[in-house]
């Protein structure tokens, strides 16, 4: 089943990478320009009617954000993930709120946490969790959350830090040599 879908997909869209995670779960990577077209095709013609989630990962070394759309097909019980890599300097992506209305919440969150813009998505500039955030989006890797916390939140002096591995070894297995 999955093979047929994959075959039809490769014919229609320029898929650069295929990763088969399980028999009923595959990830395909494709250019930004084809992604929404592909999602729309999967929803309308291949029965992937459920948007499981939309998430982003910050690959700061490569200078990209990777967006992952996971769709689910109820009849085949299969999932397909569409990976899109977008430029970190111009993080703009086409909105899919026209396909699934609930996507607006994901997009709102991504805009707030990563600064990825989805033009046209409803309430995209409204605060989702962070009311009045004035710094760079906090989920980006170049945001130092510990430093921000120490500068903003009055840390109580006297906090001790332990390395978990060392601490557990000292407390639980003091005689055992590390493997």
């Amino acid at each position: 089943m999955m093979k047929d879908i994959l075959k039809r997909l490769t014919e229609k869209f320029p898929i650069s990478e295929i990763e088969e995670q399980r028999a009923n779960m595959i990830f395909v990577t494709m250019p930004k320009i084809n992604a929404v077209q592909c999602i729309s095709y999967l929803k309308q013609f291949e029965g992937f009617t459920h948007l499981v989630m939309l998430a982003a990962v910050d690959y700061i070394e490569d200078g990209i954000f990777q967006l992952t759309y996971i769709l689910h097909n109820y009849e085949l019980h299969t999932d397909i993930g569409i990976r899109v890599q977008i430029d970190r300097k111009q993080p703009v992506m086409e909105s899919i709120h026209t396909l699934w209305a609930q996507a607006r919440t994901y997009q709102q969150e991504l805009k707030e946490m990563f600064g990825i813009d989805f033009p046209g998505s409803p309430d995209i500039d409204e605060p989702f969790l962070l009311e009045g955030w004035q710094n760079i989006p906090p989920m980006r890797k170049d945001f130092d959350t510990l430093k921000y916390s120490q500068e903003t939140f009055f840390p109580r002096p006297g906090r001790k830090h332990y390395d978990p591995q060392k601490y557990m070894k000292e407390k639980l297995y003091p005689d055992k040599e590390p493997e």
Binding site: F143, T145, S149, R156
Partner: peptide, 9 residues
Amino acid sequence: FDSYNTINR
């Protein structure tokens, strides 16, 4: 303690 969004004390 190191969260950007949670107060410390």
